[in-house]
Design a binder for these strands. Structure first.
Lengths: 227, 227
DNA sequence: TTCATACTTCGATCCTAGCCGAAGCATCTT
DNA sequence: AAGATGCTTCGGCTAGGATCGAAGTATGAA
C-alpha cells in the first residue's frame, strides 16, 4: 500500500489522552512507577498497565524492574525531543489544555525537559553560550568551540567526560513555551545536574518546574546575562 | 496534572491511518485536491472530506480554493518539520510500512495543473513571458500586453479566439512544487494544448506528469529561456 | 439555461479501543 | 508460613469515531 515510516502508529500512541498524560509526566526525566503514572493519567492501574505495554512496544518508553516496582522512563533522548517538538507545535497552534495564565509562571521560567533545562532560563542559557562564542550554530545544529571548552571548565564541567556517549554533546531542542531553542544533549544534562548539585535550584515535587533559590538565581543570571 | 500543550490532539490527528496517508502524500510539497488525497488515503471522498476538515481545524493543513477545486497543502514549514521528525522517529524504531520506491522527479519538472502546465517548466514559462514584456503583472493579477499578442501570434496562438469565454485569458496559479506562480487561464490551457498538438510533449498515462520529447524539450527551452 | 464536476453535510452502521472489576502472578515483609 | 504490595491478564461493557450511501451546495462547461 503505502511507503515510508508508520507515523500513524506513533500518532495513535501519543493520541490517547491517558497516554499523553503519562508521556508528559515522564518528560520530567524522573523514572516513575506504574502506579504513579496511573495517577498522572487519571486511570486505574489495570488501564495504565495496558497503556504502558503499548508505549513500550512502540519504543517510546522503557522499563526497569527493581524489586516489586517497575520504573518507567522515556526510551531515550530522541523520544524526549520528539515530544518537545509536538508540544511546541501544539502550542504554536493554540492547542492548550488550559490558558497559559499567571498560574504556572514557574513552568515557563524554568522546567525540566527530559534531562535538561527548558523554559526562559534554558533558552537564555543557550543564547548566552552562542553570544559569547562558546557554542557555534548554523541555526539548526550546534557545535562546541575551543573557547566553550575552556569556559565550561571554569564553570566546573569537564567537556571531555561528556563525549564518551554516542549521544551528541550539544543539541538544540525546541522550547514550547518560548518557541525558541534551548540546549539539550549531554552538556544540557550535565549543566542541569550541576545546578542541582550546587544547590542553586531544586526540582519541584510533582511538577516539572525547577525552583531556583535566591542565591542560585543570582549566580545563574550572572553566569548567563541576557541581552 | 493537565499542564501545557495538548499533544494528544495532534497525536490523534496523525494517528488515523487515512489521515497519516494524506499527510505523507502532502509531504511531497505539491498541493493536492480532495479527490487525489482520498485516493492516496484509500477512502471515499466523503470520508476524506471529513478528515481534511479535521486536519485543517488542527492547524496541520491549509486549503486554497481555485475554481471548483480545493487544493490542500501542509499548513507551513513547521508542520512539515514536525512530520519529518515523526517519520525519523518511527523509522528509528523500525516502524516501517514498506520500502520506499523511487520518487517521481518528472512530476516536479512538468505536470498538468487542471488544464495547464505546472512544475518547473510552467513557472519558467510565465517568468519568461513577464521578463520579455508579453504579460504585465502587479504580483497577483496578470494582463496581456500588445507585444504579447504579437508574440503569441508568432508562436501560433490567436489570442482573439481565447477571449470569448468568461474565463480570464491570463491567470496566475500558485505552483506548489516550485512555490511560485505559473500561467493558468485560457492562455495557459491553449499553450499546453499547443505543445501536445505539436508533439513536443505527451501526457503520462495515469500520472499528472507531462513528458517532453528530446526535440520538444529543446524547442521549449529555446522559446522560454531561463535567467 | 441545463448538465457535469468537485466537494460538503447528513444519517446510520459498525467496529475498534479504552475502561474497569475480578482474578492471577510476583515480590517483599513479618 | 501468611499477608501485603505492585503489577498483569482476562472478560465484558461502552463510547467515540471511522466509514460510506445519499442528498445538498458551489463552480465551470456547453
Amino acid at each position: 500500500m503505502k511507503e515510508g515510516p508508520d507515523i500513524a502508529r506513533i500518532g495513535t500512541l501519543i493520541g490517547d489522552p491517558a497516554r499523553a498524560n503519562m508521556l508528559t509526566a515522564l518528560m520530567g526525566g524522573q523514572a516513575l512507577t506504574a502506579t504513579e503514572l496511573a495517577q498522572a493519567a487519571g486511570v486505574t492501574l489495570q488501564t495504565a498497565s495496558s497503556h504502558l505495554s503499548k508505549l513500550e512496544d512502540g519504543g517510546l518508553i522503557a522499563q526497569r524492574k527493581q524489586g516489586r516496582h517497575r520504573y518507567f522512563t522515556l526510551a531515550d533522548a530522541a523520544a524526549g525531543s520528539l515530544l518537545e517538538s509536538l508540544m511546541g507545535f501544539a502550542a504554536s497552534r493554540g492547542h492548550l489544555r488550559h490558558q497559559p495564565g499567571p498560574k504556572d509562571p514557574a513552568l515557563r521560567k524554568a522546567r525540566v525537559c527530559y534531562d535538561h533545562l527548558a523554559g526562559d532560563y534554558g533558552v537564555r542559557m543557550l543564547d548566552s553560550f552562542v553570544k559569547r562564542g562558546a557554542i557555534a550554530t548554523d541555526g539548526e545544529n550546534l557545535a562546541m568551540t575551543e573557547e566553550g571548552r575552556a569556559e565550561l571548565g571554569r564553570i566546573g564541567i569537564d567537556v571531555g567526560t561528556l563525549s564518551s556517549s554516542r549521544r551528541p554533546i550539544c543539541k538544540s531542542c525546541l522550547d514550547w513555551s518560548e518557541r525558541r531553542s534551548h540546549l539539550a544533549g549531554t552538556l544540557g544534562k550535565a549543566l542541569l545536574s550541576h545546578f542541582l548539585e550546587k544547590g542553586w535550584a531544586r526540582r519541584s515535587g510533582e511538577s516539572r518546574a525547577v525552583l531556583f533559590t535566591p542565591e542560585g538565581e543570582r549566580k545563574f543570571l550572572a553566569l548567563f546575562p541576557a541581552d
